[in-house]
């Protein structure tokens, strides 16, 4: 299922598909936020923003406004 990082639930993992290169900071790319890499939502800050992610092994936090711009494909859970 295709969605954005913003709509992930805590603990969900997804694969990064694409994003608008002109609005995503280079620094985020360098931290490993690149198409094909895995992202996991670890924590949501108490007031709902920012989001604490594990992207490609890097632990970092970004704001929702940035998270909305990154399209991802959910990895299906093995349960069920």
């Amino acid at each position: 299922m295709q969605t954005t990082i913003h709509s992930l639930k805590k603990g969900q993992k997804a694969i990064i598909l694409d994003f608008d290169i002109d609005v995503i900071p280079l620094k985020l790319l360098e931290m490993g936020c690149l198409p094909g890499n895995e992202v996991e939502l670890l924590q949501i800050a108490p007031l709902g923003d920012p989001l604490y992610l594990n992207i490609n092994g890097s632990h970092l936090a970004i704001r929702i406004e940035t998270a909305k711009l990154i399209n991802v494909e959910l990895i299906k859970n093995k349960q069920k």
């Binding site: 995503i24 900071p25 985020l28 936090a61 970004i62 704001r63 406004e65």
Partner: peptide, 11 residues
């Protein structure tokens, strides 16, 4: 100004 926010969460 451009708004963005990236912060590393170290060990």
């Amino acid at each position: 100004g451009k708004t963005f926010f990236v912060v590393e969460m170290p060990n």
